[in-house]
Amino acid sequence: MSDVRDPLYTSLAQRVIAILWPSFLTAGLATVLLFTWIDPAELSLYVPGAEGVTRLGAYSAGFFGLWAITAVSSALTSYFGRPAGR
């Protein structure tokens, strides 16, 4: 397994999984923490334009928003994890 041909290093699919999957897990955790703390129904009272947002919609949108952010973090980690100067 210490062969440089280890597909983990070269496969695009593995890299995509390594970016999307950990960010999915952490985004799920962050969503639970965020919406335990904040009730989106109350939030919609004070955010202009958010009057019609349902809780389920807010949870879902919140999850995907957080996933996007955590995916950016994972992607940067993956990018900086590669050797520089080539």
Partner: peptide, 15 residues
């Protein structure tokens, strides 16, 4: 698992 410190040089596709 993998202790390979450096990915292969050049075209990675062939690996």
């Amino acid at each position: 698992m993998s202790k390979a410190a450096t990915p292969p040089e050049g075209n990675e596709q062939e690996f």
